[in-house]
Design a protein around this nucleic acid. Structure first.
Length: 431
RNA sequence: GCCGUGGUAGUAUAGCCUGGCUUAGUAUGCGGGCCUGUCAAGCCCGUGACCCGGGUUCAAAUCCCGGCCACGGCGCCA
């Protein structure tokens, strides 16, 4: 057998080694009287060296787990130098240093668990979407024009031209719907040049996106997001509940059952009533508001998540469907959009943090043009996109979810960097 | 981007406010020694640090300025 030497204890002419690999652990015991050569190597072995051993597995009540391998032959495949971080107890080392040595940080079960769960969450997303007839697509991440505004986009050199990294697959998802695939989804990286120093932002993260055609109501978009979060928490809790409970005291230990849907106005009312927090009509929640709302719903009603609907036009992107166009379609519905005009869009707050944004999209060519102008964007820069709506575009909507945020909220992690294998932030570009 | 707090051995911290009383303390790691049943083994010995640059001062880990980095708050966002 082979693996990493996790613990080494030298007791005179006897050495205990806890050997670890992907599948688990076993104690090796190296006795001088059985194999003097192995004993010599073992007593000078360093923690986290990779070793291979031959021996006999024996039942022994004195061994941890009741069994151990009595070693007859030991080989050091790759010795380890003294470790720069404490692998045994990650919280003893500051996160930044652990990230510098992520490959050692991950030697700890507790840390690896985060990424096993992340894989599970992504897998559930894929399963849920496929089961509903969505096709997985893979869209470009190098773009000729910034898709949703300028300030937060990364510029790259593309041969002799300037190009941009995708902030979202939004426009391409819609292309997928209009192309006839009708229902599409993507799990992929997105890039945001936002110089934030917060525990919930990354400059590169994994976005789980979907877009669906022929909707009659944007509640159908929420139904999909709800099905995903229920299934994701259900799967993670049933598969990893025991480990999560052992390692993460602030984790969610039960599946999300019901997700209420309330309008922004209703949320304002709750926050005013319960916490005396006043918002101007149509104003998005601030960080504190999101947190307080999460606390209130959890404590009073046992809800872990909530949809906030009917966000006003002001803070929403140009492609958002105004409620006016759903309630009374026609030429007029998009002519006089004001910042406080409600839209058929929503946010999903999970344990007090925004994890998903979505809604219905404008599919009427004329209205789309008006909305682009309303936001002060030049239609020429988006001509390929706008032209799509000239040739038959069904009513549609979709949403995008930050994978790392979901994992952060399930496990109750303090910093989103913990939930990203190799995080990128305004300072960090390595490893 | 703005604001705040911080940066001391491999790791985590004390000392800083009130400059000298420090040979910079403690835990752990690491190196050596003892030990045939360890379970984060124990005991003994040893090892190792004031982020970078400038300034104030007889004297700077300690006070001031700049830089870099880290953490947090805000705005913003997934």
């Amino acid at each position: 057998m082979a693996g990493w030497a996790e613990h080494i204890r030298v007791i005179g002419r006897l050495v205990f080694i806890v050997l670890r690999d992907r599948t688990g652990r076993v104690q090796l015991v190296v006795r001088k009287n059985i194999s003097p050569e192995s004993w010599k190597l073992a007593r000078k072995l360093s923690v986290e060296s990779v070793i291979a051993a031959k021996g006999v597995l024996k039942e022994n009540p004195e061994a941890p787990g009741g069994r151990e391998v009595v070693v007859s032959e030991l080989e050091v495949l790759s010795p380890a130098e003294p470790l720069p971080i404490d692998v045994r107890e990650p919280e003893k080392t500051i996160l930044a240093k652990r990230l510098d040595y992520r490959y050692l940080d991950l030697r700890n079960d507790k840390i690896r668990l985060i990424f096993q769960i992340e894989a599970e969450v992504a897998e559930v997303f894929r399963q849920v979407l496929r089961s509903k007839g969505f096709t997985e697509i893979f869209t470009p991440k190098i773009l000729g024009a910034a898709s949703e505004g300028g300030a937060e986009v990364f510029t790259v050199i593309y041969f002799k031209r300037e190009a941009f990294l995708a902030q979202s697959p939004q426009l391409y998802k819609q292309l997928g719907v209009i192309s006839g695939l009708e229902r599409v989804f993507e799990i992929g990286p997105v890039f945001r040049a936002e110089p934030h120093h917060t525990p919930r932002h990354l400059t590169e993260y994994t976005s789980m996106d979907y877009e669906m055609g022929f909707i009659s109501d944007f509640n159908q978009v929420m139904d999909v997001a709800e099905a995903f979060l229920k299934k994701a928490t259900e799967t993670v809790v049933s598969k990893y509940g025991d480990l999560i409970e052992k390692f993460y005291p602030n984790a969610l230990l039960e599946p999300v059952k019901e997700i209420p849907r309330m309008t922004l106005e209703e949320v304002h009312e709750i926050l005013r009533r319960e916490y005396g927090k006043e918002y101007p009509p149509g104003e998005d929640l601030d960080t504190e508001g999101e947190r307080l709302l999460g606390e209130y719903l959890e404590k009073e009603h046992g809800y872990h998540a909530v949809f906030i609907t009917r966000y006003p036009w002001g803070p929403r992107p140009f492609y958002t469907m105004p409620c006016t166009c759903v309630e009374s379609p026609g030429e007029e519905c998009c002519t006089n959009l004001k910042p406080d005009t409600p839209t058929c869009s929503f946010d999903l707050i999970f344990r007090g943090l925004e994890m998903t944004t979505g809604g219905q999209r404008q599919h009427d060519y004329k209205c789309l043009l008006k909305q682009v102008e309303n936001k002060g964007i030049s239609p020429e820069s988006l001509s390929w996109y706008i032209d799509m709506f000239k040739y038959g575009a069904p009513p549609h909507g979709g949403a995008g979810t930050g994978l790392e945020r979901v994992v952060k909220q399930i496990l109750g992690l303090k910093n989103i960097r913990e939930a990203r294998l190799l995080p990128r932030d305004p300072e960090r570009l390595t490893p």
